[in-house]
Amino acid sequence: MESEKTKEESKPFEDPEKKPDARQRSVEPQPAYRGEPAASAMVAERLSAYYGAFKALADINISIQQNKITALIGPSGCGKSTFVRCLNRMHEVTPGGRIEGKLLLYGEDVCGRDVDPVQVRRKVGMVFQKPNPFPTMSIYDNVIAGLKLGGRRKSSELSEVVERTLRQAALWDEVKDKLKESGMALSGGQQQRLCIARTLAVEPEVVLMDEPASALDPVSTQKIEDAMEELKERYTVVIVTHNMQQAARISDYTGFFYIENMGDPGRLWEFDETSKIFSSPNRKETEDYVTGRFG
């Protein structure tokens, strides 16, 4: 039993049809990797997501490791973005958006009826595909926009947060002399890093990034990747990316999402350490994808 469990946990992806006992799996959060210092920050148990009647994601089981970068890859439209949007309950914001299953943040149910999504989002921050700074706010105000929701703070404290988070987002040197200017005056890459700083200022446990570099040039992408390396010291990072090199470069774990037939919901096809996924994946589709044979 013990060994089986270890084996099961070491491969958080389970296909319920092959392994019926997966259904009875305990909902208690478990450290996914025995013997490693890392623990699960977030655990999804048979998580499904819907848009109205359409099932976009089916039975996702995953355990996201604390202070690690988890990359989610896969062809377009296979539910990667939907999945990260489930993690901080942004999915429900879309008309018809609905989540089933269990989602735990440090053992606490995130999707419970009595859990306020507002509270979840303070703990699980998100950076979007397109930079979306608030155009009416200055750079400074953009960074502390989320912080201000939590109540008044001393301006010295705020300045400190602004500098720290902008440094973490590798943007400080570029904007330190123009903090009072509009965030819209920045380049696309700078705007995205501003959005990262804004997310960090709230001090979440987990930072979700939905293809944060897809709309950016290579230099900006490089800067964001550099910033992420430092981020995992303090945060757990989940990043959706189209770019497999990026996933291979920066992530510790990689999840591959895949849709077998047109119209099926997306599934987490394989989840493992990044080195394993990119060198010797267990499933053929994963191998085809990471070697660039489709997608």
Partner: peptide, 25 residues
């Protein structure tokens, strides 16, 4: 909607989203 989502993802309530992101925009 990116403006709304940006504010919501920071943990804003609907009113905070409206008053701090939507209305200024």
């Amino acid at each position: 909607d990116a403006q709304r989502e940006g504010m919501l993802a920071l943990g804003a309530t609907r009113w905070e989203m409206f008053s701090r992101a939507v209305l200024p925009y």
